[in-house]
Design a protein around this nucleic acid. Structure first.
Ligand SMILES: [Zn+2]
Ligand SMILES: [Zn+2]
Ligand SMILES: [Zn+2]
Ligand SMILES: [Zn+2]
Lengths: 152, 152
DNA sequence: CGCTAGATGGGAATGATTTTCAGATCAATG
DNA sequence: CATTGATCTGAAAATCATTCCCATCTAGCG
């Protein structure tokens, strides 16, 4: 739409971490950060279209996987196997509680698991151990609603 | 083929746990148990075809997911998102180290994670917390081979 | 032996993700 | 500015695991 002024005070330093700075990437990253939670590539793509910033689905995929590769996003899979991404502001690797109903996510203290994983890695004889930990459930809100709706 | 004697000393009691006993299910379950490790539905299907016991792919999928639902199998997703199943003889829920090269799997002591998950479940206010923990890496054998093959 | 709810298979349908590739854009350079 | 090689973009086609459909079988039960 309009040209950026040179040396803009961009709050999107992240865009520069994943190759060339383009308008599309800026848009995707901005929307991704604004999302504040796990989003699927498709969902983000729809959201962008709705906001009047049409960006190719391929570009959304490319940007999200690039962010994940660069360590700026966490990636999980929902129960159907779809990938969900979440922006990671800091350098710390985290794990989250993820509501299977509404998608609300909350980081949890995962120190113990990290220690455990480290121990396994050290004692197993296996190299390059990586771990995936997902906690899924129904959040308080959804739980309440559900209790009201069903009688079981 | 041939009729079973009544009250056969079947090592396949599991077949009866998931609905009607059919020849196909018996074949699938038997092969699944014999596999001793994580297998994908397609891989199992191929193996069966190779062994001259053609069973529909749909049936393999149905049987494996039924076993998983009945708690007789563990399910994980490999890095590409494909589902892998592993037969679970006992009632205990386990977690495994899974080699990303050759598929070798080894159960690990997951007590600490279970405790941690329980704590989260109790203190989070979330209901029905379930967890997924996967450890993936390269096993000693594959690691050695890799070191020999590449210089990095 | 007959009946019927449940099971089978295989080909088509799904749906997320990836690839392709012909332009559009960019950053740098002269 | 104009040029240019490197990168990026996106529409459409390709992949590929998994599911769906449904005509056809069969286990289980009188
Ligand atoms: Zn919720
Ligand atoms: Zn961790
Ligand atoms: Zn291995
Ligand atoms: Zn566990």
């Amino acid at each position: 739409m309009e040209r950026n002024r040179p040396a803009a005070p961009t709050p999107l330093a992240d865009v520069t971490l994943i190759g060339r700075h383009t308008q599309q990437r800026a848009v995707v990253v901005k929307a991704f950060i604004r999302a504040e939670g796990f989003v699927g590539a498709q969902a983000l793509h729809n959201r962008l279209a709705a906001d009047g910033s049409p960006v190719g689905l391929s570009t959304v995929y490319r940007t999200l996987t690039a962010l994940a590769d660069a360590g700026r996003a966490d990636m999980v899979r929902d129960t159907s196997g779809e990938r969900l991404f979440r922006y990671r502001p800091g350098p710390d690797h985290r794990h989250y509680l993820l509501c299977t109903e509404c998608g609300l996510s909350r980081p949890v203290d995962s120190g113990p698991v990290e220690d455990w994983a480290d121990t396994i890695a050290r004692t197993s004889g296996f190299a390059n151990v990586r771990h995936t930990v997902e906690l899924s459930e129904v959040c308080p809100d959804c739980g309440r609603q559900r209790a009201t709706a069903e009688h079981r």
